[in-house]
Design a protein around this nucleic acid. Structure first.
Lengths: 333, 333
DNA sequence: CTGTTAGCGCTTTCAC
DNA sequence: GTGAAAGCGCTAACAG
């Protein structure tokens, strides 16, 4: 009598049966770790798995191993140019160590807690928090503490973090302006609730003051291109020698509104500085002087956290990535 | 004697114990589906869950329910501007129906099968395949057939698909060129191995021929900005009245190399047409005439597939999304 | 080295 | 409406 073909995917029990061994042996033979199995049986198991087209159910496995090879990337959203430069590379690297990425977009709402609570995300091996809507307290509550890496500039809860050393780049940018005789400046900022943004703005103000440049206006954007265009309409711009934007996207918006005055006229009506050093700024259309950091180094640190969290921790909770200033047409007189 | 505080997260058993009910009752009370439980006990369970800070382990749940509320988004990579316009919105919508997104980037390799086989991705509820490296046979093998939505232009295996009706937009673009007296054209293409690309190129050729425009050269890029710049160096461009690119990114590269001749000179050295209608093309720097489709409609169809696959299937396996042509400075004489 | 046994955390029969 | 018990697929502990 023929055994009725089981429905659905073959399980490890099917493999074991076909190979004529116990489930435990099959499990060991199929394991990626070295486990004691005789060469003979291992081969039979592997063969059986092959003929059955067996694929392990990683969900079931994770139930006992307590590890899913899944990392959550928690972001506000992905629609900035600077995101493109970062996330593709990041995902690629994470996958290269055998983990996969679940993207958690928390938008502008405060729903993050609910999100994580009701989703797989809560059970991932680690969470990379780029979103600054995820405040430290929430994140601490949500995950086992040492599996969370703060990439959003928040430092107040002792969780490990990687933060670009923005001061260096900002100091260089402001020094560049001072050198060119800038006396008055406007600062175009992102959402002020963000910790990174507060620190960033603080650095700008300190550096401006140090060089005796007076800040004649501070305008609130939201990092986006559109918000850059919006603030660019202000009449206050007539009096500014320089405009510093805390994102390249906003600087692009500003540049488009004042394109003629900035790229065609000499002397320029004002010098323009961005932040992020997006790839697009390297080309003709948006030659914006900017502040960047080495994404490769940044990502390498994230990977170090993912693969050897202990080592990462012991080396200290905070890793700083150096930033640099790059001068382009938008700030050349 | 005090019960020793259990390690790790509270399980449903803990909740049941605290509430003084069986695990089954606790499970029902906590279920999102309506299940028979007395109001009294439900309340006690909910209360217990709250005080314990209980969060269900969705991996364990999925073992019995066979559903994880996880959808895989399979892409080549995400570094095109057009990706930004699409994925942020897509992820947001998917999350809004209670599912989360696992991003599988297959890069340029053929490792997709291995990827999916060894990862959670294989156990997702559905896979949205944007990558054209995932050939139909592989995908069919990997997933239960009806849980795969082909968004990469491949149609050969009877899997459901959503495809923009590119012909309409292309016909309009070429007609626009013809109307302006274009007699010769160059076509800048993406990777020719892609099915979408082959169809797209076929449409361009047919339309050019129909209008008696002769195709004097076909140049191979890879959709990227950089590849656009690369091909833009060709001397063949002297003889072309128009250049059609199968991506806006490539058109942007072309535009930057010929910026002066295209935006400052009248008459232009050639008319430029892109494809994708990226958001950035709406502004001053890259005013590229382009072909686009309504992302909102597109995403709505994807969501329809996700939430009511049966209905989606019964309505036919292929959904076409309309495209449009938008005329901008790059093609104005 | 091998097989048996006991779970991982949850849902779901199936009797009561 | 309720609870005992079985079981999803897998791995780990423990004897042999």
């Amino acid at each position: 009598m023929i055994e009725p073909r089981k429905l659905g995917q073959p399980t490890i029990a099917d493999v074991a049966e076909l190979a004529g061994v116990s489930r435990a042996i099959a499990s060991r033979a199929l394991s990626s770790e070295p486990r004691p199995v005789s060469a003979d049986k291992r081969e039979r198991v592997l063969q059986a798995a092959r003929t059955l087209g067996y694929k392990p159910n990683l969900l079931a496995r994770s139930l006992t191993t307590k590890t899913v090879n899944l990392v959550a990337v928690v972001v506000n959203h992905i629609h900035d140019l600077s995101d493109l430069d970062l996330f593709d590379h990041l995902i690629s690297e994470i996958q290269s160590i055998g983990k996969q990425v679940i993207f958690v977009r928390v938008g502008s709402s405060e729903r993050i807690e609910e999100f994580l609570r009701n989703g797989i995300a809560y059970h991932v091996d680690a969470a990379l928090v780029f979103s600054d809507f995820a405040n430290a307290a929430t994140v601490r509550k949500m995950f086992r503490n040492d599996s969370v890496l703060m990439l959003n500039g928040m430092r107040d809860d002792g969780a490990p973090a990687i933060i670009p050393d923005e001061l260096t780049g900002i100091a260089a940018a402001v020094a560049d302006a001072a050198e060119k005789g800038v006396r008055t400046a406007i600062l175009v900022t992102g959402r002020s609730a963000s910790a990174v943004e507060q620190a960033r703005v603080g650095h700008y103000k300190a550096e401006l003051q140090r060089h005796g440049i007076s800040l004649i206006a501070e305008m609130r954007g939201d990092y986006s291109y559109q918000s850059g265009r919006r603030v660019a309409a202000s009449p206050a711009w007539q009096k500014a020698d320089a405009v510093f934007c805390t994102s390249d996207a906003m600087a692009m918006g500003v540049l488009d509104v004042h394109r003629n005055a900035l790229l065609e006229n000499k002397p320029k009506s004002f010098l323009l500085y961005g932040f992020d050093d997006v790839t697009l700024a390297e080309y003709e259309a948006y030659p914006i002087s900017s502040i960047g950091y080495d994404k490769t180094v940044y990502i390498k640190e994230i990977l170090r956290f993912l693969s050897t969290p202990k080592e990462f921790q012991s080396a200290g909770m905070l890793v700083q990535v150096p930033t640099y200033f790059v001068s382009r047409t938008s700030s050349r007189k």
